[in-house]
Amino acid sequence: MEPSLEIERKFLVTTLPDLAAASRSSLRQGYLTVPEDSVEVRLRQTDGTFILCVKSGEGIVRGEREIEISEAQFQLLWPQTEGRRVEKTRWTGGLDQGLTFELDIFGGALAPLMMVEVEFRSEAEAHQFVAPDWFGRDVSTDRRFGNKSLALSGASFIRELSGG
Score class of each variant (00 low, 15 high):
residue 46 T to Q: 13
residue 46 T to K: 08
residue 47 D to K: 07
residue 48 G to R: 12
residue 49 T to S: 13
residue 50 F to T: 01
residue 52 L to G: 00
residue 53 C to T: 15
residue 55 K to G: 06
residue 55 K to Q: 11
residue 55 K to D: 14
residue 55 K to N: 13
residue 56 S to T: 15
residue 56 S to D: 11
residue 57 G to R: 11
residue 59 G to I: 11
residue 59 G to M: 13
residue 60 I to V: 04
residue 60 I to W: 13
residue 61 V to D: 08
residue 62 R to N: 14
residue 63 G to V: 03
residue 64 E to W: 07
residue 64 E to C: 01
residue 65 R to K: 04
residue 65 R to C: 01
residue 66 E to P: 00
residue 66 E to A: 06
residue 67 I to R: 00
residue 69 I to A: 04
residue 69 I to T: 01
residue 71 E to Y: 09
residue 72 A to Q: 12
residue 72 A to H: 04
residue 72 A to Y: 02
residue 73 Q to Y: 06
residue 73 Q to E: 15
residue 74 F to W: 12
residue 74 F to K: 01
residue 76 L to G: 05
residue 76 L to I: 09
residue 77 L to E: 13
residue 77 L to P: 06
residue 77 L to N: 14
residue 78 W to M: 04
residue 80 Q to F: 14
residue 81 T to C: 15
residue 82 E to K: 10
residue 82 E to F: 09
residue 83 G to T: 05
residue 83 G to W: 15
residue 84 R to E: 14
residue 84 R to H: 12
residue 85 R to P: 00
residue 85 R to W: 08
residue 87 E to T: 13
residue 87 E to R: 10
residue 88 K to H: 13
residue 88 K to Q: 11
residue 89 T to C: 06
residue 89 T to V: 15
residue 90 R to W: 07
residue 91 W to D: 00
residue 92 T to Q: 08
residue 95 L to W: 10
residue 95 L to D: 09
residue 96 D to G: 02
residue 96 D to V: 03
residue 101 F to K: 06
residue 102 E to V: 02
residue 103 L to W: 09
residue 104 D to H: 00
residue 104 D to M: 01
residue 106 F to S: 02
residue 107 G to M: 13
residue 108 G to K: 01
residue 108 G to I: 02
residue 108 G to V: 03
residue 109 A to L: 10
residue 111 A to R: 07
residue 111 A to K: 05
residue 112 P to E: 15
residue 112 P to W: 10
residue 112 P to K: 07
residue 112 P to G: 10
residue 113 L to G: 05
residue 114 M to S: 11
residue 114 M to W: 12
residue 114 M to A: 15
residue 116 V to Q: 09
residue 117 E to M: 04
residue 117 E to N: 10
residue 119 E to K: 04
residue 124 A to V: 11
residue 125 E to K: 03
residue 125 E to V: 00
residue 127 H to K: 09
residue 127 H to I: 01
residue 128 Q to L: 10
residue 129 F to D: 06
